[in-house]
Design a protein around this nucleic acid. Structure first.
Lengths: 201, 201
DNA sequence: TGTACATCAGTGAACGCGCGTTCACTGATGTAC
DNA sequence: TGTACATCAGTGAACGCGCGTTCACTGATGTAC
C-alpha cells in the first residue's frame, strides 16, 4: 500500500524508531538487520531509506531514544520521593530485579550497549550518543548521593553505579542459572541495606 | 605451501587457537571472521576446516582457552601471597588497571564475553563454556574472602566480583574519556582500601 | 466543492559485498618395500 | 639407506546466503485551478 498520508508516514517513522530502540537493546547493536526492524514495525525494508540515512543513523537515534526514556523514568521515580536516599533505593530495586534482567528491550541502555561500545571506534557517533546518555544517567544517579564530602560522594556514585551495571550484566549473562538470581539479590541487598556502609546518611 | 609436517600442523592449530583467543576477546564473539583469524595466524582460510568443525567450534575452544589462561594467572598470583586478603588485592589491582582496560585481548574473558552471552541461546555450547569458566574464576575469587560468616562471605564475593566486572566494562566503554580512569580508580581504591568496610578481616 | 495532475511513501526485485563453508588441486611428508 | 607411491595440510576459487543499500514502479495523497 504505497503513498500513505504525511501524518501516517511520520507515525510509521515513530513506530520504526520505537521498534529499533527495543530490538537493539534486546539483541545488540549488531544483532538486528534493517529487514528485522522494518518487519517489527509492520513494514517492508524498501521504505527504510526514505526515513533514515543509514542503518547506523537509526542505531544512533534509537540508542539516543533509549537513553532519553531511561532518564525520564529515573526522574519520574526520583520526583515521587522526598528523601534522596529513598529515591536512590527506588531506582536500584527495579534496576536489579528479575524483570529488568529478563526485559533488556525496556531496560538500561548502558548495560545493553556497553559491550558493543568496547568495540566501537573512538570518534563514532554511536560512542558520543552513548557517552552523553551515560553522563546524563550517571549525573542523575550521583545527585542522590550527598553527604557534603564531594570527593567521597563522587566515589560512592561511581562504585554504586559500576556495581549496578556489573550485576545486571552478569545476571543477564548467567540467566537460567541459580547464580543469576544470587547476583541480583546480593547487589540489591548490599546497595539498599539500612546498615550498608555504602548508604549515604 | 601445502602439506607441512604433522608436527607443524599441530603447531599451526595451536597458533590459530592462540590468535582466536586474543581476537575474540578484542572484538567480540561476532566481530571476527574465519578469514581474519587465519590471517592473524599467518595462514589462508581454506585450511580452517581441516582443524575445526566450524567457526562456532573454534569460538568455544578459544573462549575456553581464555578462561583457562585467566584461571591459571589468578592461581599463580594467589600462590605468590601468604595472606588471603593480600592475594585478593593482588588480583584486583591489575584487574582494574589501565593496562587491563586497554588490552582486552589478554584480559578477563568474563568482561570480554558477558555482552555476547546476553544474546546467546540458552543451551548453547558457548554459554556452557562461559558458565564453567565464570564459576571457576568466581570460586577462586570467593576463596579469598573468608571471615567465617559463610553467607556474608558469599555476598561479599558476589558484590566485589560484580563491581570488578562492571567497572572494567564501563571503563572500556568510556575509554578516551576522563570518566574511564575515574571509574577504575574509584573501584580500585574502594575494593582495596584498608578502611574499606568491604575488606575481609 | 470538484476535477486533473504532480508528488512521493511504501513495495519488492536487484545490486555488490563479506561471510561461513566446500572442494579440486598441489606438492611436501610419511610410509612401504 | 634409497626409492616409489600414497597421504593429506594448506591453497585459492567457488558456493549459497544474508546483509545494507538502491531503484523502478505503484497508486493514494496533496495541490493547483
Amino acid at each position: 500500500m504505497p503513498r500513505v498520508s504525511r501524518k501516517q508516514a511520520d507515525l510509521n517513522r515513530e513506530v520504526i524508531v520505537e521498534a529499533a530502540t527495543r530490538l537493539f537493546r534486546e539483541r545488540g547493536l549488531h544483532g538486528i538487520s534493517v529487514v528485522d526492524v522494518m518487519a517489527a514495525a509492520g513494514l517492508t525494508h524498501g521504505g527504510f531509506y526514505g526515513h533514515f540515512e543509514s542503518r547506523e543513523a537509526l542505531a544512533q537515534e534509537a540508542s539516543g531514544r533509549a537513553f532519553e526514556q531511561s532518564a525520564a523514568r529515573w526522574k519520574e521515580r526520583i520526583a515521587a520521593h522526598d528523601d534522596k536516599d529513598t529515591a536512590r533505593r527506588a531506582l536500584i530495586e527495579p534496576y536489579l530485579s528479575a524483570a529488568s534482567r529478563d526485559n533488556p528491550g525496556e531496560s538500561c541502555p548502558v548495560v545493553a550497549f556497553a559491550g558493543d561500545m568496547c568495540h566501537e571506534a573512538a570518534g563514532s557517533g554511536l560512542r558520543e550518543t552513548f557517552m552523553d546518555g551515560l553522563n546524563a544517567l550517571f549525573d542523575t544517579f550521583g545527585s542522590l548521593i550527598e553527604t557534603g564530602d564531594n570527593d567521597g560522594d563522587r566515589q560512592q556514585a561511581l562504585v554504586q553505579y559500576s556495581l549496578m551495571v556489573g550485576a545486571l550484566t552478569l545476571a543477564r549473562a548467567t540467566r537460567g542459572d541459580a547464580l543469576s538470581d544470587e547476583i541480583l539479590q546480593a547487589a540489591r541487598s548490599f546497595l539498599t541495606a539500612d546498615s550498608s556502609p555504602l548508604a549515604p546518611v
